[in-house]
Amino acid sequence: MIIKVEGLTHIYNPNSPFETKALDNVNLEIAKGEFVGLIGHTGSGKSTLIQHLNGLIKPTSGKVIIDGVDISAEGANLKDIRQKVGLVFQYPEHQLFEETIYKDVAFGPINLGLSEEEVDKRVKEAIELVGLNYDKIKNRSPFELSGGQKRRVAIAGVLAMEPEVLILDEPTAGLDPKGRDEILKQIKKLHQDFNMTIILVSHSMEDIARLVDKIIVMHKGRVSIVGKPKDVFKKADELEELGLGVPQVTYFMRELKKRGKKVRDDIITVEDAKEEILRLLRGNGNA
C-alpha cells in the first residue's frame, strides 16, 4: 500500500463558532500503481483529504501513512513526502509565475538541490510528458499559452519532481472538450507507461468511468462507497442522493432494462453499450 489513511478526522476552526468537521473518521488504502477516482459533492471533503496526503494540512486525529512513513507524526520529513506525492491543485495555471516555461518547470527540481544536468533532463522530460514541444516552448513566457497548454505546463512542474503518486484536483475544470481530452490522455499515459499511482478528483462521471480502476465516493466527510466503477455506478439511486450521478449511457441502459429488455446493468462506457445492444438486437433469435 503506497497510501494508507487510518481514522482520519479533520476539524476546521476548532472551538470556534465556525467549527466544521471536514473529515470524519476516514479509512482508506491505495495500492501502488492504482488509478483512483475520487468523487463527491462540493463540500464532501475531497480537497481536505488530498491536502492531507502530502502533508499540507495535519489531521486533527488519525494517521496518514505514505509508503510506510507516518507523515502526521512529529518530525516527519515533509520535503520527502511532497516529492513523493505530487499535488496538482485546481486551476494550477494560476500558480505559474516565471518568465519562461523552462524556469517555471525547473523551479521545483532546483529547490531539490539537483545538479544542473539533472534539472535540465527532468525539465525536458516533464514538458514532453505533458505533450508539449520542449525546443519550441522552453524559452517562451507561460502567459502566452492557451488555457489548456498553461495547465499542462503547471502539471509538468509537478512531474519534474518525479513523484510516485500524482494527485490531480479537477484537472479539466474550465477546459473545453479538446483540452480536456488532451490532459486526460496524458494522465492515462503516465499511469500506463510509468505505473504511476494516480488519484483523480473529478465531477465528470463519464471521465471517471473510462479511466479509473477504483472509485472512492466521499460524502459529508466520510468515505461512503468504494469499489470498481462497474459496481459503483450500479448504485445510481444512492449516488443521486449524494448529489452525484452515473454516466448518461448507464442511465440509458437502466431505462432499457426497466422496459423489459434483457441487458446487463454494469455498462458504463459508450463502447460497451454498443456491444451490448448489438448483442441484444442480433442475438434476439437464440436468446
Partner: peptide, 29 residues
Amino acid sequence: GLDVPQVTELAYMLRKEGIDIPQNILTIE
C-alpha cells in the same frame, strides 16, 4: 473537438453498424 451527448454518440455508432434508428437522437427517452 466538441462533445455530443453519450446517447447521441451511441445512436451514431449503432447506425454505423447498420441498426435502423433515427439520426437525431438527443435524449435517453
